[in-house]
Simulated scan of single mutants.
Amino acid sequence: MAKKVVATLKKEGGAKYAKVIRAVKSPKTGAYTFKEEIMLEEDAKKALSGN
């Protein structure tokens, strides 16, 4: 499934997108859940660097 999503995001001449998957810890239970987002490549680099 991920291969299909990535392949459709790589269209020539368009904006470059990236799929970002983050582990988020629940403050209530302490369990980790995964949050998936599709965003611009530049925004993804900023989000992953922590800024």
Rank of each mutant, 00 (worst) to 15 (best):
M1I: 11
M1D: 12
M1W: 08
A2H: 09
K3P: 00
K3T: 10
K4N: 09
V5F: 13
V6P: 00
V6T: 09
V6H: 05
T8V: 14
L9A: 05
L9M: 15
K10F: 01
K10N: 13
K10W: 01
K11R: 15
E12I: 10
E12S: 14
G13Y: 05
G14Y: 05
A15K: 14
A15S: 10
A15L: 07
K16Q: 05
Y17Q: 01
Y17C: 00
A18P: 00
A18Q: 04
A18W: 00
K19M: 12
I21W: 02
I21N: 11
I21F: 08
I21Q: 15
R22T: 14
R22W: 03
R22L: 14
A23Q: 13
V24H: 10
V24F: 09
V24L: 10
K25T: 15
K25I: 15
S26R: 09
P27Q: 13
K28P: 00
K28Y: 08
A31S: 08
A31G: 02
Y32H: 12
Y32D: 07
T33I: 11
F34N: 10
F34C: 05
F34I: 06
K35I: 04
K35M: 05
K35L: 04
E37L: 11
M39A: 03
M39Y: 02
M39H: 01
M39I: 15
L40P: 00
L40H: 12
L40K: 12
L40I: 02
E41V: 15
E42V: 09
E42D: 15
D43R: 08
K45R: 15
K45H: 10
K46D: 06
K46I: 08
K46L: 10
A47R: 01
G50R: 05
G50D: 02
G50K: 07
N51M: 09
N51K: 14
N51V: 11
